[in-house]
Amino acid sequence: MNTLQVWVVRTLLKNTTIILFLLLFVGFGLLAPNFLSLRNLEIIISNASYIGIIAVGMTFVLLTGGIDLSVGSVMYVSAVVVGLLIENYDFSIAAALMVGFLAGLAFGLFNAVVITLLGIPPFIATLVTMIAGRGVGLLLTRSAAVDFPDELTMLSAVRVFGIQLNIFIFALVVLAATVFLMLTASGRRLYAVGNDPEAARKAGINATALIAMTYVISGGCAALAGFVSISQLGRVNAGFGMGDEFDAIAAAVLGGASLFGGVGTAFPGTVLGTIMIQMVQAGLVFIRVDLYIQPIVMGGIIFFAVFLDSFRRVQLKKLERRNIMRLSDS
């Protein structure tokens, strides 16, 4: 291969997320012209916002090579806490939201302690929180649905600077995450920890604290996502948030985050991944595909993205393998 070809292949492989995104975008646009309307895009992003918020928190966890399966349950418990406080204890909405958010952080802290101090693998620790967390939520509600007052559901119609509130919150979360990850010392050290935890400890980085922090962040994001979701639904039933952990992981991975740690971004990566999932779902509706086929297509696309990612890793390794002979030799 000549240098130009190498460059082209490398560039394509390094930008699979955005290329896939554009392909899908243009593809649906051609199949259904009004798919590309501004209004429709707003709906897509609005629908993507709550999974997106979880996925940003998940990105932090994935960066350390961990995983958080508990976010769906944490979302449920936080929402339940808010609802019960308002309904039974006359809390103001703001105070209830605050306590609910703290509940999310507390679950994250529990994960963090179990993983970093007790040494339990993240998969098992957060699986336990996923099961037991939902159990706690059901215990609080006696498995009944919780309704929320209109003041809360009206929030979903609020616009900030002309942007829907949920999109605005999503954007704020993404902005904060990106600033933290890209511009602060702790953010860059998080990447270091994900790349090589042992070397990070040797370099005097408090890897344990950083890893613990990511689970707390993930718990907080899950709670926040729960609030965004209840403002849209107005009601929380026993299955609220169930399975969302997998969507969030899929979104982050689709956005280029690696399950092995050290690779991934909140923006553009995870944002694109989340919107892509929502775009496919909306696009399939636009081109009138059987609703039952949607999850099948979704699965296919995520599989394809992960396949490309693995293929890319192998290919990049080959391209970056050191040439022993000078290129002119061979």
Binding site: P295, I296, G300, F303, V306
Partner: peptide
């Protein structure tokens, strides 16, 4: 094959097949 030959992470591969084949199982009998 996805895990061993294409070196894809087992977690994601089987997560996707869980979603995919469950969806087919629901789709076939609606």
């Amino acid at each position: 094959i996805a895990v061993a030959v294409f070196r894809m992470p087992a977690f994601i591969v089987t997560l996707v097949s869980m979603m995919f084949f469950s969806a087919i199982a629901v789709y076939l009998p609606k």
